[in-house]
Amino acid sequence: MTRGRLLWPLVALGALIVLNIAVEPSFVELRIQDGHLFGSMVDILRNGAPTLLIAVGMTLVIATRGIDLSVGAVAAIAGAIACTYISGGGNAATAVLLALSVCVLLGLWNGFLVSVLGIQPIIATLVLMTAGRGGAMLLTEGQIVTVKDPLYRQIGSGFLVLPIAILISLAVLTAVALITRRTALGMLIEAVGINPKAGELAGVRSRTIIWTVYVFAGLCAGVAGLMISSNVNAADANNAGLWIEMDAILAVVIGGTSLAGGRYSLAGTMLGALVIQTLTTTVYTIGVPTNVTLIFKAVVVIAVCLLQSPRTTRMLRARRKTAVPTSRSQEVAAG
């Protein structure tokens, strides 16, 4: 079943890559310079790292039937805190710790509103989505705070063969996959997402689980915010992480995790994030005029979502069924 759901995002990714190669053959070129890997595809990985990281946190939140709209604002706050601190003469390591601690607190706040007060997630996190960016503006006094710190720079633009940013995101993704699937956490998260009442009566600590995923989402957003600001050596409270929550949600949905909660797929989320970032890059590569960029993006996203919808799957299956009558039972057995 997972395989079936991931088919179309894979096709979309492949199609986008082919399109890029057709327009710009150097797209696939990779070269090594000073022990660093360079090339368009490496750029996609580096620029997509924050979206991927936020999407990982978002996946768990969505699996519990929730959503976190505040991640973009939290990312902006993280950057603002780190840069303000560094520009005031502080060292980078402390700045990072400080910024991430605040993000954990913000995650605690979101989790408190959702799990303890029982406010609907979309409303609870909307609070911080609006207020958070305002907070970041206050911190930076409405200015773009620039920093020159070689260590801080590494987060967003450093390389260990591959960009450090994507290594961080992949490490977090792998760790989350291992922790949730090797322990019972993943199953409990899904149970809470599918039927919270049943989970509660079976003794699952639903409240703690829900609270935790929002804290984790806040932390992911914080790290992503550091990547974004480190990449440009500046904190831009207005634009850092702007609309990134939408990209992250899209990545999760394209990856086959239902917004209704329950079964989630981290592999799908990774694929979704790659599709989104490749799409953004493609817009520049093939020279889509700026004024239709968003529309182009929307068309691709809706195409993928349509192809994934159960109705389309059924229709395609009905066609295939005449040719291969056993395909249906096989898929069910695999699911």
Partner: peptide, 18 residues
């Protein structure tokens, strides 16, 4: 009671696991 989208296995061990 029922956690509809999970397997018999997951449903059966849910309370024990919790």
């Amino acid at each position: 009671g029922v956690v509809a989208d999970l397997s018999i296995r997951d449903n059966l061990v849910l309370a024990l696991q919790a």
